[in-house]
Design a protein around this nucleic acid. Structure first.
Lengths: 247, 247
DNA sequence: ACCTGAACACCGTTCAAGT
DNA sequence: ACCTGAACACCGTTCAAGT
C-alpha cells in the first residue's frame, strides 16, 4: 500500500513541516500561534479568536499568520488538540477504575475549556494528545480479552459520554450566567418552570408528570457528580457484561 | 412561585406570539421562515443559511426577517427543533425494544440532516419536537420502577449516544467526499493509514498494535449497524442491570 | 523566503424612512 | 404595524509589493 501524503493540518500538528532552507528564519512557529489562540479562547471565548486578535497576541500582522496555518479552520483543529491535557497515568489500575477516572478527567478538561465543546465534532482525533488519550484507554482494556475493534468502540463511547455530560453541565451553568442579560434558559429551576408553562399535559403526559414530581431537581444536582456517575456506571456495567460474556 | 416570562426564542417556537392588532397583516410567519431555512440547509448545508438567502427563499427583503426572528442564532435554534421528525410510536412495546428503535431513529434523522449536528449543543431541548421525543422515552420506561430523574438521565444518555454515533459516521463519510479536494481525512482506511505514518510505537504502543491488527477495519464496518448496536447494547445492558437492582 | 499594508468579499444587523 | 434600501461594522483572506 502506497504511503499517502499527510493532510496539511495533520502534518502541522505533528510538527512534520518540511523546513525551508533559504531566506530569513521564521520568527514564529505553529505551536506559539496555537498557544496564543488558546490563551485568547480561555479569556474571551471562541468568538474572541479572530485572525487579527491572534496576530496581535503574538505581535505580528494579521496576514503573517497565513505563513503558518492554512486557514482559521486549520488553526481551530490544532487548538482542539493542543488544549487537552495529558491523560491520567494508568499505574496498573484495573480497567474499570482507570476508565472511570479517564472519563471524568475527560469531562473535567472540557468544563475547564468549554469552547472545546464547539470544536469536538470537527474532525476525528488525529492529534498527538487525542491519540494519547485513546492509547491509554486501549491499554487499560488490554487484559480483558476484548478485541481491538471492541476496545476502540468502548473508548469512543466513553469520550462521547464525557462530551455530552460536559455539554449538558456547561449549557446549564452558562445559561444561568447569561440569564441576567437576555431571557435565555437559566439553569434547571427555570427549565422546569418553562416546561411547566409550555407543556400540554395531554400531549406530553410523562414529561408533565416528571416536571411536577420535580424530576429535574435543583441545578446543583446536575453539576454534581451523581448524575455523571449514574450514566458512567451504565456504560461500565455494559462493558463488564461484555467481558463476562467473553470469558 | 411566580411565573417567569418565556424567553423569546421559546415563545416563538411554541407559537406564543402576542399577536399584534393594528396595521397591515404580516405577510410571513415564523414557521414559513424556519421551513425555508431548513430547505436551504438540506440543499447547501449550514453555511448556505444566510439571512439573505433565507429572505430570498421566502421572497422578501433580508431585513424583513428581523420582524419575525430576533437574530440568526434564534432562527438556528428554531430550525434545530423543527427539523426533527416525530418520535416513533410506542405501541405498547417493552422498554428495551422501544428505546432501541428510538435511539436508532434519533441517529437516523441526524444522518439525514447532518447540519443538525452542529446545532445540538446550542441549547437544552425546549421545542415541541425535542420534548415529544423525551416524553416518549419516559413513557417507555414508565413500568420499570425507575424514578423520574433516572428516566430522564437514561433518555439523555441515549440521545447523546445517538448524536455521537451520527457525528462519527458523518465525519467519516463526509471526509471521504471532501478528500478529492484538499487532503483532509478520507474515511477509515486513510485514517488508519495516517495513524500508521504518524505514530511512534514507543509512545503509542496500544494504538499502534490496534492499527496493525486492522482494528479500525473497513469504512463500511463503521457506517454499518454493528458498531452502533454494540454501544447501544452497552447502554441498555446498563439500564437493565439498574432495573434488576431495583426490583 | 519571510513579512506586511491596502484592499476585497462577505454577511449580520441597525436605522431612518416609506406605506 | 409592517416592509425595505442604504449603510455600517466586522472579519477572513488575497495580492502585490517590500526586505
Amino acid at each position: 500500500m502506497a504511503e499517502r501524503a499527510l493532510p496539511p493540518v495533520v502534518a502541522r500538528m505533528w510538527g512534520r513541516e518540511t523546513a525551508s532552507r533559504h531566506g530569513p528564519r521564521p520568527s514564529l512557529d505553529v505551536a506559539g500561534i496555537v498557544a496564543a489562540a488558546i490563551a485568547i479562547a480561555d479569556r474571551d471565548g471562541l468568538e474572541g479568536v479572530k485572525m487579527s486578535s491572534v496576530a496581535a497576541e503574538v505581535g505580528v500582522a494579521t496576514m503573517s499568520l497565513y505563513r503558518y496555518v492554512g486557514s482559521k479552520d486549520e488553526l481551530l483543529v490544532a487548538m482542539a488538540d493542543a488544549a487537552a491535557p495529558e491523560p491520567p497515568a494508568l499505574d496498573g489500575r484495573p480497567w474499570r477504575a482507570y476508565l472511570a477516572t479517564w472519563t471524568r478527567a475527560n469531562r473535567d478538561f472540557l468544563l475547564d475549556r468549554p469552547w472545546l465543546l464547539a470544536l469536538t465534532s470537527r474532525t476525528p482525533p488525529a492529534g498527538p494528545r487525542a491519540l494519547r488519550w485513546l492509547d491509554r484507554a486501549l491499554a487499560a482494556l488490554a487484559g480483558t480479552g476484548l478485541g481491538h475493534g471492541e476496545r476502540i468502540n468502548i473508548a469512543t463511547s466513553l469520550t462521547s459520554y464525557a462530551a455530552s455530560q460536559a455539554t449538558l453541565v456547561h449549557g446549564m451553568t452558562s445559561a444561568a450566567e447569561a440569564a441576567a442579560g437576555d431571557g435565555s434558559i437559566a439553569g434547571l429551576a427555570d427549565y422546569g418552570d418553562i416546561l411547566g408553562q409550555v407543556l400540554d399535559p395531554a400531549e406530553y403526559p410523562e414529561l408533565t408528570a416528571a416536571v411536577r414530581a420535580g424530576g429535574f431537581g435543583a441545578a446543583e444536582e446536575w453539576t454534581d457528580d451523581a448524575d455523571f456517575n449514574f450514566g458512567l456506571d451504565l456504560l461500565l456495567d455494559g462493558v463488564e457484561a461484555l467481558i463476562a460474556r467473553r470469558t
